[in-house]
């Protein structure tokens, strides 16, 4: 579904990603793991057309993405729930959700809105409230709901768990599995590698801008060097 080949990206003169290769098959949950500064967010921004790639290609369903504008990429069915959520803080929860469906012209937007409120009753209670006044967990629900309102085929999730209580993280990640069950492919970017790999089919490990490791989740979870580096376990 998505195939990234030999991708290099940077800011200004500084190269941040070196020769990245990554593939995602339809219906998969793929985890992308790495510490702060490894280049995970840079990779997602490049996928969304927010950063121009230096070299390499990004193909999505056979179409080259690397020179497309962000709005075209969104139109193709790829959606990013950005790190830090980036909600429209001065707008109500409902307006934020409707912004997610901005490109849609079909008649089922209302129906999907109700579906989001069923998934997140907390958002339903606060739909008229300004998004900036929500708690961190609620904001993350709103950001995820906003992405889902676009009916993405490929959903990119950047650090959903950041700064949230473990119980909220569990709930959101379980929901990701449910979303996949409904036909959405997911690229899950996380620092919380155990939680991520427990739910992903496969994983990639990004270190210092290079893809250091990849494989099925169980293999990565039992990999000794990963366990030492990320979980502090021998």
């Amino acid at each position: 579904m998505l195939a990234i080949k030999d991708l290099s990206v940077g800011y200004g003169d500084t190269k941040v990603l070196w020769d990245i290769n990554l593939e995602i098959a339809p219906g998969e949950i793929v985890a992308l793991i790495g510490v702060n500064g490894a280049g995970k967010t840079t990779l997602l921004k490049t996928l969304m057309g927010l950063l121009p790639p230096w070299t390499g290609s990004i193909r999505y369903r056979g179409q080259e993405l690397s020179r497309l504008d962000t709005h075209r990429i969104v139109k193709l069915g790829i959606n990013l729930t950005p790190q830090g959520r980036l909600l429209f803080t001065g707008m109500s929860v409902e307006e934020n959700l409707l912004m997610g469906a901005y490109l849609r012209r079909d008649s089922e937007v209302k129906h999907d809105l109700k579906h989001i409120y069923d998934l997140f009753p907390r958002l339903s209670e606060r739909k008229r409230q300004r998004a900036g006044t929500l708690s961190g967990g609620e904001q993350q629900m709103c950001a995820l709901g906003r992405s889902l309102m676009s009916r993405p085929s490929l959903l990119l999730l950047d650090e959903m768990s950041l700064g949230l209580a473990p119980i909220v993280v569990e709930m959101l990640l379980d929901l990701v599995v449910e979303i996949r069950g409904q036909g959405t492919t997911v690229l899950l970017v996380e620092q919380d590698i155990e939680e991520a790999l427990l739910r992903a089919d496969r994983g990639y490990v990004l270190e210092g801008g290079r893809m250091e490791m990849s494989g099925p989740s169980p293999d990565l979870l039992s990999n000794a060097s990963l366990r030492v580096a990320y979980l502090g376990l021998a």
Binding site: T70, H71, V74, K75, P82, F88, M91, Y102
Partner: peptide, 10 residues
């Protein structure tokens, strides 16, 4: 309120 999230909405 933010050009980056606005772009991400398409």
């Amino acid at each position: 309120m933010g050009t980056e999230p606005a772009r991400l909405m398409g």
